[in-house]
Simulated scan of single mutants.
Amino acid sequence: MLSRSIRGDRKYHKELIQFKGNTTLETAVLEARIDNMLTQFETNNEKRLIPHKNGNRAYHEIISFHANDSKNLSRDAMLDVARTYAKERSPNSLMVFSLHRNKTHLHIHAIVSAVELGGKVKRLSKNQFRELKQTMERYQEKHLQLEHSKVNHSKKKNHRF
């Protein structure tokens, strides 16, 4: 898991390493880590410059890789993708990433705070999100040489296999 601007997260990471193999203690550390992150997302949300009762607090976004590309992706490469996404998506926001394999393909789940650290709401328009996807695709082509993990940017929903 990669977290950005989460205070105290390194402490939990060190504890996880220390308690590796002890399922009970690992679970307790993970629960405390998640509680810490949730508290920080909620505290950050309270700093909105323009309060909104039912405003988004966070966004759940997924970076998915084709199965044929997944076998060539290392954990370090995926962490690099997550870091690049964070810089391109919203460099002044809280973010948490989780890397995992589901069935045959790898993907990265991102939780992105809807409020930047300074209190400004950070929402991407459809065009901004499309540009972000294209930026990430160019990054992947240049740095990871992925052949199959292309984004379909057309409005028609068709599947490419």
Rank of each mutant, 00 (worst) to 15 (best):
H13P: 02
F97T: 00
N22D: 15
A114M: 05
D69Q: 03
N56P: 04
E26L: 04
L106F: 12
K11D: 06
E26N: 13
I62K: 00
I17S: 06
Y59C: 10
L49C: 03
E42W: 11
I111V: 11
T104W: 08
E46S: 09
N45V: 12
T43C: 06
K47G: 01
F65R: 01
A58Q: 12
N56V: 05
I111E: 00
R33A: 10
G21S: 06
N36W: 03
E26W: 11
H66D: 00
I63A: 00
G21H: 15
A86W: 10
T84M: 15
A110M: 11
K20D: 13
H100W: 02
D80A: 15
K87Y: 09
L38R: 14
S74F: 05
T39W: 05
E31Y: 02
N72Y: 05
E31R: 07
L106W: 06
N92L: 09
I62H: 07
T84W: 13
L16Y: 12
H105I: 00
S90L: 04
S98D: 01
R83K: 15
I50S: 11
D35T: 04
L106G: 08
S113Q: 14
A32T: 02
R33T: 07
R89H: 07
R10W: 14
S113R: 10
E42C: 15
A28H: 08
T104I: 04
A110Y: 00
K14L: 07
A77I: 08
H66W: 01
E61N: 09
E15F: 05
F65N: 03
E42S: 15
L79V: 03
S90G: 08
R89N: 01
